[in-house]
Nucleic acid binder design. Sequence first.
DNA 1: AAGGCGTGGGC
DNA 2: TGCCCAAGCCT
Length: 366
Amino acid sequence: MAAIQDVEAAASAGPAIAEKLLAWYGREGRSLPWRIPPGADETPDPYKVWLSEVMLQQTTVKAVLPRYGRFLRRWPRVEDLAAAPLGDVLAEWAGLGYYARARNLHACAVAVAEEHGGRFPATEAGLKQLPGIGDYTAAAIAAIAFNEPAAPVDGNIERVMTRLFALKTPLPEAKPEIKALAASLTPKDRPGDFAQCLMDLGAQICTPKRPACGLCPIRADCAGYAEGLAEVLPYKAAKAERPTRLGTAFVSVRQDGAVLLRERPPKGLLGGMLEVPSTPWEGQQASAPLDFAPLEADWRKKVGLVEHTFTHFHLKLEIYAAEVAEGAALSVAADPGRCRWVARRDLADAALPSLMRKVLRHGLGE
DNA sequence: AAGGCGTGGGC
DNA sequence: TGCCCAAGCCT
């Protein structure tokens, strides 16, 4: 890894670079609902900072914006969130993905409310003990909400640092060096502003594709730019290819319009969310998919497939639909204890992930 | 330590 | 179209 000279260079050139960046942040930084203006004397509410950071994990600002305000209105304080049923939190999170975040968010709220008197720990180490708070989020909350001299490193900051110092070591191997460089650049008096400044630069100027180097406040300091590598850095290790899995889902519609849904196991893929009962999803279609139907009915196969891509596999689902009698008995294989009939008008607010909304739309023929 | 874990947008 | 990508965490 080496590159001690990079860290020393960052430490000596650091103050000048940080000054240019913070000046840019004052002019061009984004105004976001979980932020307070740059250079303000007070620090933002740790609960709001934490919520925004968790929502933003692997999720775009655009996707988070409409959800953050809704969530905060529903549960304005950490104690409110801690008192909510997990199912309500999952329903509010539906569509945002990575549902372990919502499960951990709830567990974290309970821990803060019950074990920390309703106040978040004020240090990076203390924050990192809490569920769903890892290296990045602990450092971000410590810096932004508590003005601690922490240096969070997210994907934006990785990109900015690898370009600024022309780091050719591929990710994730380069992470320790990136962390050291970011820490050496961080001004001790404004760690929160500086972290958010780097993230804004990464999001608006130092973008993954076609970076706007012409508008960059530190182009003159950028080794990646000087070497003509800004656009191709960071180098990344190759990722595994995604297999395709197949299955068949069964949309059961009762006479009164209610739809049969089932709660998934509490952990793992879509853990704790609701699903449309289906065969297992495997490398090939089940030879007799109807054996997996949740009840006996006149099943009709819908034309076409529902396709969905998860992080680590593609999924193609055949859809069968049937209108079923009011008192139809669920098959034992359907695990009736986890099943429930949900009225059509309640679907919008149910804990249904995007995949299952696609399945319902297809199966209900809308 | 590498792989599981969502989703929607952009090219 | 298919792939890449977004303020990562957990095991």
